[in-house]
Amino acid sequence: MPRWGMLFDLKRCIGCNACAIACKQENTTPTGVHFTKTVSEEIGTYPNVTRAYVPLICNHCEDAPCERACPTGATYTNEDGLVLVDENKCIGCKACATACPYKNRFVLTKQPFKVGYYGNGQTPFEKQGYGRWVAGTATKCTFCHERIAEGKDPACVATCPTEARVFGDLDDPNSKLRRLIQARKGYQPHAEFNTRPKVFYAD
């Protein structure tokens, strides 16, 4: 079985957040839920100042604190190494959301489903997509596992205009992902936490 992972090339990311939009379009996530996004950081002080961008996504950790914290087993790791949520088992205790060191877990509240994106009811887009969510449960990025099953890249990877996101099998030594991690000395976010993330960053 593959062990899916991702690499963010920080030299290529331009902070356009097309990834965040593509994710929203693919998953119809309600207001306030961003499975992926790119945050900015100002570095330096005037006149020597610059702005850098950091993409964020669930790291699908091999030793996921969210999975350990979950009291019901609703958070689980599938055979492809993806950390997923069974919303039928989730009780909405939010333990996973507090446990995730990267703050990449979300809890779906009822309000966004009632009022929609613009506060005046659901748009047709929201109506077609909200069926997949259960209010009061936790949710997270799935690496677009339905797309992966069809042989496609996750939506955020497919849409990235600068190819700053590289997706692939971490166990395949010939995959572009694995070669880039080795060549660019890819590193994991907060490796010191021993969560063994499957997302890498390259400077």
């Binding site: 009291p71 989730c90 205790c93």
Partner: peptide, 18 residues
């Protein structure tokens, strides 16, 4: 606090890790 209190009994399922 719970999003689905009617399922609260399920919280006993994770004795091995939670």
């Amino acid at each position: 606090h719970l999003g689905h209190p009617e399922r609260a009994w399920r919280a006993i399922m994770g004795l091995g890790h939670s």
